[in-house]
Amino acid sequence: MTELQAGRASETLGAPSIETRSFRSRYRDILIALVAFAVLAALPFFFGSKALLDFVIRCSAFGLFATSLNLLVGYTGMISFGHGMFFGLGAYGFGLLMQRTAVPIPVAFVATLAITAVFAAIIGAICVRLKEIYFAFVTLAFQMLIHSTILTWASLTGGDQGLRGGIPRPVFFGIDLANHVHLYITSCALLVLGLLLMRQIAQSPFGYTLRVIRDNARRASFIGIDVWRAKLTIFVLAALFASTGGMVMALFVSGAYPEFAYWTISGEGIFINMLGGVTTFLGPMVGTVLLLILNDTVTRYTEYHGIVLGAVILFFAIGLRKGLMDYVLEWYTQRRDGPGERG
């Protein structure tokens, strides 16, 4: 883009128009979220299948995780290969609080978020300064550190057996999470609320700051953006949503396992983003559903599901070179704008 074009672009994106647009789109997002929640909540009344509800709960856990990772990968250009540590931290933190203390669930929920925030702030303060490949590997190293701590600190975490004995789920506000439908509705509510909040972050001025950093960090710092602080903020925020995903998972399996904190969770998160596409907000959600369906089908037919998964990744990475939603979006804009013009 030449300077002339850049100047024109900023003219058309005048301040008032962005304001009204975001104002209107915010209401639209809330409306979409309410409708989505209503549809999900109505599901158990039409389909009694437990397997379907289980599937949606797992989608909630991994969807929250993957979408929060997209805040880093897609919006800020920070390829974290250790985001799964916050998923594991959420699951273990929540599970331990519920097992060891007698606090009500909402308190444990908030406390786990606070613990995650502290960890994310410390780890982020060290990592976000690093350049892309260093950032990827140092986050990965922290993930492995947390994983090996979970394995070795057996007196607290149960080591490689995980947190056993189930997570107590006392009733709060009339919600009984031991009840499958209640758990389902709560997961859906957390998912929809989480997605809505992340959407607000992505569409806020701060979200656009992140895009500026992704496209050109040096220019961003030149126009007065504190890049380090913005990156750290989004790192912590994303960790909170990943932790929420981990808590949903811990509630679902009524325990926590070292696999939740293993690096493959981060790898799968990156893959989900790739599968669904990082340029649309709901891409990771689509990717989550696709991966879970793929996983469930493949594990039914073969024990070597790494090979099949690897082949699918290669197809997307080398063949398509973009995610499914990216592909659909491109195809759609091309159709709308007519051939020859790229959206």
Partner: peptide
């Protein structure tokens, strides 16, 4: 970009 390179390698770690 780096993401693609990591993904290709990740696929081969699994394979």
């Amino acid at each position: 970009d780096v993401l693609m390179q990591l993904l290709v390698c990740y696929a081969f770690v699994l394979i």
